[in-house]
Design a protein around this nucleic acid. Structure first.
Lengths: 219, 219
DNA sequence: CCATGCATATATGCATACATAAAAGAATGG
DNA sequence: CCATTCTTTTATGTATGCATATATGCATGG
């Protein structure tokens, strides 16, 4: 056979599937995610669904009440500002450390991802744009060569997605917040390429705060 | 009946039980934690054990290999320094925010915990000392009134425990690193009481770095 | 004697049945 | 007519049996 499709574990499929449902806006803040329903939709038993939901809960993507189930978090703009302020701090540190330890092949991949980002934005393909943006922040987190910082950075990104998916779309346009993203990413990459760690930190902090202001300015 | 024991969910009992086994040093770095063995020891089925292990894995307390199981992480001093540097940053921020939002009743509880801390240290009761120390950092994390910062702070504390439990005992004495802890906690509390956020941050950063240096100075 | 392939053992991944707790609704008493 | 309590409903929590992937050891061939 030509295709070398490795059979993915059901738990991972469940995680990806539920995440997909969330960012296709099949649920709203406060909505209840029933295990049986999800297991029916995704074509598997409750076990991997439950484990995926647990993971999302611990990562902060979902609220969970004992013996009740999982819910899409109802978040306030005030909380959102706290999250993005923390993200600015953490991802600023990521950029700072990446500027010191990032290798050339990683830089190339980051540039490539940023090109895809730009292309998806041009094509107005929201799904691909989200993926490329996520890939950029995740690969940068990995480039910092610090397992603890990487984990925290990825988790905060996931949590921020809740705001991007819901809040942002209610008050402003996603496109508005995205339109300057690729060029800001470009600036960050240039600082890292120059091994200017302090500048990389500042550029990243500004990028995160800019993203926050897109939905944080409405209350 | 006098005691109002609410029946704890098995998953929580499993989590607490496994954590207890870890900090009673029943396992060493690299050791394999077999689900069936744990379910036998803790007197429950594999299901809650598996869920507790998943939680610990996501929190970074355990390594997990697909279709293999969970292991006590094998960590290096180099990684340890990265972790404690990050903790200094995060808990410094916790202290800073707590200094602005901490209420009087919380302050009283923090002082009370610190007294227990001191007492446990005097009695050379390692278990109670660990619990009191954990309670101090956790309650402070809650005092910051920032759900995201709280989550990150608690997770990093858990991960740091791995170093405290294993590394520290191999090279130095636990008592040595603990002996100045209550008075450092006292300084932090005083800064918070004075609403001096910047001083609270510095005091906390120094406290974390001090803890790190107890085992970070041997390589 | 070493390398490669296969068989077997073992522990996790998954599916399913049942137990249990929380919430909603009905019935009864004030 | 409202409040309280009991019943019923419903979805999660837990236990268990089977499927499956990984690793180990043995056998066989070069």
């Amino acid at each position: 056979m030509v295709t070398k499709e490795k059979k993915m574990p059901s738990e991972d499929l469940a995680y990806a599937g539920i995440l997909k449902l969330i960012y296709e806006r099949k649920f709203s803040p406060g909505d209840f995610l029933q295990e049986e329903y999800l297991s029916h939709i995704l074509g598997m038993s409750r076990t991997p669904i439950n484990r995926a939901l647990s993971k999302m809960n611990i990562e902060g993507l979902l609220e969970r009440k004992k013996k009740k189930g999982c819910f899409i978090p109802v978040v306030t703009l005030r909380d959102g500002r706290k999250l993005f302020t923390l993200r600015a701090m953490i991802e600023g540190q990521v950029a700072w450390e990446a500027a010191q330890s990032c290798t050339s092949p990683l830089m190339d991949r980051l540039c490539e991802i940023n090109r895809q980002d730009q292309k998806a934005l041009k094509d107005r393909d929201d799904g691909r744009y989200y993926m490329a943006n996520r890939d950029f922040h995740f690969l940068l987190a990995e480039s910092a060569n610090n397992r603890y910082l990487e984990r925290v950075s990825k988790q905060l990104f996931h949590q921020a997605s809740i705001y991007i998916f819901f809040y942002d779309s209610f008050y402003t346009s996603t496109k508005k917040s995205a339109i300057y993203t690729p060029e800001q990413h470009e600036v960050i990459l240039q600082c890292i390429k120059d091994r200017n760690a302090d500048a990389a930190r500042v550029a990243m902090e500004e990028h995160i705060i800019h993203t926050m202001k897109m939905f944080g300015s409405v209350d």
